[in-house]
Computed example of a mutant assay.
Amino acid sequence: MSEYQYYEFRNLSGSLTRKQQQCLRGISSRASISAAHFSNEYHFGDLQADASDLMADFFDLGLYMANWGSAELYIKMPRQLLDEQLLQAFQINGIFEYKHLGENWLLHFALSETEDYLLIEGKCESWMGKLQALRDELYRGDYRCLYIIWLCAFYYDCEEVDKLPQLNAALSGFSEAQQAFAEFLHLDSTWLTALNQLLPSQKESKKLDDNESKKQWLSGLTEQQIQSTLLQLLNDNAQICQEQLLRAYQSDQQCNKSHIIGEIDPIVLQKCHQQILQQAQQQQEEIRQQQQKKRQVLRAHYLKGVYQEKEKFWQAAQDDVEKAGSRAYDNAAQKLFDLSQAYQLNQAADEFQLHLTQFMQPYLRKRAFIKGLRTLGLSFTC
């Protein structure tokens, strides 16, 4: 199998200058490059630059996938929005690491080599769109994606993992982007369900409290800050305006909030996960039994009709045998098998056996046909 690698980067906080785009073109002559985007795939060779350097100089999001099993996601975030103590609590060598990039953090998420990514060619382009919202969520102070990192480490049996840091926030399920992130890292969704059941649910009052906190913060803005914000909106810079407001709000919240409030024992999580798997197996078994009963009812109804029209079925089987050929023999054998079950359902198995023996007398030399009957469990006396 040939080598395949895919790179994609996006700038979400502005536009790349013409000079920056020319610099990127010098790195790759075949890449797709725009004012906010860079992507390329490689069957031979590799990107002539380090992904971390590209993130430092040009981009806010980066994605890398290779068909030998590697999958990596890069997210650049302002340092004032993410407390280093929070990042340290979830840092796991080889799965989640971070480093300084001037005024930013570079978050690096990685999946160890796995055979699950052997056939990814032509399937990578959609991942960036699915994962892009993770950065927006982190901007808003939603750190649930960090739970997914820890769950991956636990799932892949990382020796460094012993306790799960518990965030100072109730868990209200996982967003579409976070679920896609788990899929990207090949984490079974049942682990998300287990953690969601284990942690307290978010209450409506909590959402109201968050809104009140934001209102209180907004009321403290100076007239100059308000005018600057409105000017950004008038100049059609809504995204930049939102990022600046969120950055200022989250920075203020960082000073008044402890992000880690405790730990979760992995053994407790594993027991919860095992219960979910058992429940899922029970549900699947119940569905299987219901489907089997439905098939049995339909089969019994069909066999009732076969018995009522048994003479036609005998004749149809005879016509198929006379045609000869493997398909005709298979059709005839299936009709005879249906007849056998129809007779048995009507307590007339002996009658069927006698009729089958008579039916087969002209065809004792048709070995292929006889072999097909025996495969279906039908036998007769010569």
Rank of each mutant, 00 (worst) to 15 (best):
L151F: 07
M55H: 10
L81M: 15
S15M: 09
K203F: 04
L298G: 03
Q308A: 12
G45Y: 10
G69K: 07
A133V: 07
Q216F: 09
H43S: 13
A316I: 00
Q197F: 02
Q291P: 00
I92T: 14
I33F: 06
C241F: 05
S175H: 07
C382V: 09
H108N: 09
Q344L: 05
S213Q: 15
A51F: 02
Q225R: 14
A133L: 11
Y98W: 14
E204L: 11
F59G: 05
R30W: 07
L218K: 11
P362I: 02
H100E: 14
T381L: 13
K304P: 00
A342L: 06
D50I: 05
R295K: 15
S126C: 00
N256D: 08
E72C: 12
L151W: 06
L199Q: 15
A170H: 13
K99R: 15
L336Y: 02
D338M: 03
P200F: 05
K19L: 13
D116I: 01
C272L: 07
S13A: 11
V268P: 01
A324I: 03
L192S: 09
D53Q: 14
Y343F: 15
Q254M: 07
H108E: 14
E311N: 12
I260C: 02
S201C: 01
Q48C: 04
Q318Y: 09
D209N: 01
L111A: 13
G305D: 12
Q334K: 13
F154N: 03
A333S: 07
G377W: 06
L61P: 01
I120H: 08
Q291K: 12
Q250H: 04
Y155E: 11
S379N: 14
S70V: 09
S379E: 15
G26R: 13
G305K: 14
N256R: 13
Q250A: 01
L376Y: 06
I95T: 09
K371V: 10
T114H: 13
L198Q: 14
T357S: 14
G26L: 09
Q227N: 04
F369V: 06
Q48I: 01
L24I: 07
S28N: 15
F337D: 04
A177N: 08
C23N: 10
F313T: 02
N346T: 04
S29D: 12
D57F: 02
S340P: 00
Q344E: 14
R18K: 14
E263L: 11
S201T: 08
L146G: 01
A177G: 02
Q88K: 14
L199Y: 06
L47F: 11
W217Q: 04
L378W: 07
F184A: 09
S34M: 06
R10A: 07
L54Y: 10
E176G: 00
P165G: 03
I240R: 08
Q5L: 09
S13G: 08
K123D: 08
L373M: 12
M55W: 05
D265F: 01
L336W: 02
L231Y: 10
L63C: 05
E125D: 11
Y307P: 01
